[in-house]
Design a protein around this nucleic acid. Structure first.
Lengths: 259, 259
DNA sequence: TCCTGAGTCGTACACTGTACGAAGTAACAC
DNA sequence: GTGTTACTTCGTACAGTGTACGACTCAGGA
């Protein structure tokens, strides 16, 4: 009997219980009947992460992962119910890499958290795509991160809900900033075209169709930004700028609370 | 001769000139030799947008678009060089929908811009996925938006680069906020599972594996947030909260400049 | 020894994007 | 009128995808 459309979870998410058991490693260990497992979920996920790091999420296929492990494609399905769940495991494993140091002030702490997340995205640009396409899986590492990051703003005069809002806001901002900051590397991997090549290919074409008199502001600012980026300017600037504004905003709120 | 891997742009981006001509509608019009074109790029893109709105980006396939238009699949390739370019056109068309009204103060203007973008993402959640996976295409509508949004912060005492940074920051923030705010709807379309269903399926499982004593802060705040969201609380709150902090930060900067 | 549950994986199916080439159509040159 | 030629249409084919199914092998318990 083939699957009916009604059965199908279109994004590919399957049984929540199986999914959580996988993430938290609480699956029932087998009673040792058949042959010993030759693989583990972690080994599979590690190979998949390597592949995604090297060639992008688009190149991640069950066949390629199996190949990398020297194993038949379908063997993976013994350990992982479907590709979506494998990606969830990859996600949580990488979350475990984020480990910002502690600092004196809440502001420094949030800066270090943002920085650690940015670096994680730099190492694993596909994480941005994963986040864009699915609900974040509630794995042990992402929850540990959430707890740690909440503690960074504990006791500074915010309500529980405000603490959540602030931490979420930083997450969201870093995601967005990482996207623009890392786009070069990620797109280069995916399209074989570096940011400079891309700009050099498009800029003259844009000049042909773009009317500077119609959009004087965009022309002026775009030229300034273009020149700046073209030179050895650090694209970090945007990241730091936005984060500073954001934390200034948080500061304003905290000050208002303590008055 | 089949394509060699070296020829292939892995993400699917093709000739930049063709791409720009498509976006700006500057393609050479045919000298009227053969049969009249039965389709237009816009008709195709409109059908594709409808499909993506209704069933998500994952369901967007050339075959389905062609079906919707009552035409053979390969006919589409007369008007559009590849799927990636079609998505670029869809992207710019939707950008044309974003039209925030003007307002008195820069702060109100930025709020209206953020709001208009959020509503666009609500109507077309797949736009978030498109942004996550490719460099934004430099189409006429997105450039017009950029110009308009820059003018919202013109003459308030910021440098050109700062204007760019502020506008980009708002874009980035709205993207992130939209992602979390809209995730429910988008994931529901993609997975057949509403946010509440999702939470109801996962919450009890999470309780089993989650140790509140290990993560007391996450437990406390998570409970507060969970309760709040479960009731008829508007998830808009997060959006407004973050935007307010962000604009507070901009205000701080502008004040500092004018002193 | 047989049974049974577990790991392995070849095959198959329904999809995808799109290269290729054949067929049809309408305007131009003669 | 008659090619010629540019143009649209689209059937077929191919390489790739995720994964359902079932056959096979293996090892511990009865």
């Amino acid at each position: 009997m083939t699957k009916k459309p009604e059965d199908k979870h279109y994004g590919g998410r399957g049984d929540p219980a199986r999914s959580m058991a996988l993430l938290w490693r609480t699956g029932p260990e087998p009673r040792g009947r058949g042959p010993k497992p030759g693989l583990t979920v972690d080994r599979i996920a590690a190979a998949a992460i390597e592949l995604a790091d090297a060639e992008g999420l688009a190149a991640l296929s069950m066949r390629r992962v199996a190949e990398r492990l020297g194993v038949g494609t379908m063997s993976l399905y013994t350990y992982v119910p479907a590709k979506a769940e494998l990606v969830d495991v990859m996600f949580d494993l990488v979350c475990g890499e984020v480990a910002p140091p502690w600092a004196e002030t809440w502001r420094e702490r949030l800066e270090l958290i943002a920085r650690a997340n940015l670096e994680m995205y730099r190492r694993h640009p596909w994480m941005l795509t994963v986040m864009a396409n699915s609900r974040p899986p509630l794995g042990p590492n992402s929850i540990a991160n959430y707890d740690r990051d909440l503690r960074a703003v504990e006791g500074v005069g915010l309500s529980d809900l405000e603490m959540d809002s602030v931490v979420t806001m930083v997450y969201v901002y870093v995601q967005g900033a990482a996207r623009t900051a890392i786009e070069a590397a990620g797109s280069e991997r995916d399209t074989g075209q570096s940011d400079l090549e891309w700009w050099e290919a498009y800029a003259p074409l844009l000049e042909k169709v773009f009317d500077p008199e119609k959009y004087p502001t965009a022309a002026r600012v775009g030229a300034a930004a273009g020149e700046t980026y073209q030179s050895a300017y650090d694209p970090e600037h945007g990241f730091r700028f936005g984060l500073a504004r954001l934390l200034d905003g948080v500061e304003t709120m905290i000050r208002a609370r303590s008055e």
